[in-house]
Amino acid sequence: MQAFEYSNPASLKEATALLAASWGEADVLAGGTDLISLMKDSLHTPKRVVNIKSIHELGGIVRTAAGLRIGATVTMDELARNAEVRAGYPALADAAAGIPSPQIRHMGTVGGDLCQRPRCWYYRQGFGLLAMKEGKSLVTGGENQYHAIFGGGPAYFVSASSLGPALIALEAKVRLLSAKGARVIPAIEFFVTPQDESTREIALRPDEILTEILVLAAATHSATYEVRQKEALDWPLAAASVAIKMKGPVVGSARIVLGHVAPTPWEATAAGEWLAGKNITVETAEAAGKAAVEGAQPLSHNTYKVTLAKTAVKRALLAAAKVRA
């Protein structure tokens, strides 16, 4: 691991002043569950590490008139256990509780979940975010069992975020702060598909800190369903978060967002629209699952993920509507 300067600011003002205008200068440290391994593997070699865990205002889950404000350094465990989150936003609580590592749940933070780097093994072994060699993608011709089935490149890694799909389904916003000021953007705009090696998979700028997440007042039924082979210490193969606003006995509107199937959380807009006006039954949930994977472009070894995504949508919808399969 390369030597670095460690700073431990007590305020956001101090913290933002320590960040730089370009990537590679400074990295923000919260739970450290991803950053430390990135640094050990020399994938990140920051000159400065800015610890934000001492900044009090980044913690806590607070109810506001508009909904919930979730601080960036809230741990996944705090989020999963929070009574308001569990009651009003099961998709979010499911997503946090589903992280199958007690260590990551207790150390990992909400902000870190959104900002973590992809788990793509080509990226992690130093072949680059897009994993290109001599103008060709290593992923499409290689071992792509855990890679994207949507998006069509040039990036084929999958977004590692567990919370991203749920936050998008719930129409949450994220607040980003730099020394120049704050901006608030919809969660769906936070995730981007990089087109080249120099860009990131998130909209955060190098001089910004993700400070909080804002979730609207709950008016939805929601759920997250993750498909993961091992009981513990394993990454999901696919996931779906759904949020449904009911209109009497039928669906008024639904948002369906897939996880771990594309470089960003992947909203299945058409499937959500198709559900409007329908009851949630095993049949409609299954049909929505099928609609959600339409247009999937699986790679040589990951067609199975299409089935997983379809199943995740179906099961998330049934869970949100509390229909037994």
């Binding site: 093994w121 290593l138 290689g142 082979q229």
Partner: peptide, 25 residues
């Protein structure tokens, strides 16, 4: 073991994607 044809690298030379059963499995 996942070997990569193009680079010749073992892609899961770790305890993350070289998956081992846990007791719950």
């Amino acid at each position: 073991r996942f070997m990569d044809a193009a680079t010749g690298a073992m892609l899961n030379a770790d305890m993350e994607f070289y998956k081992l059963a846990g007791i719950g499995d």
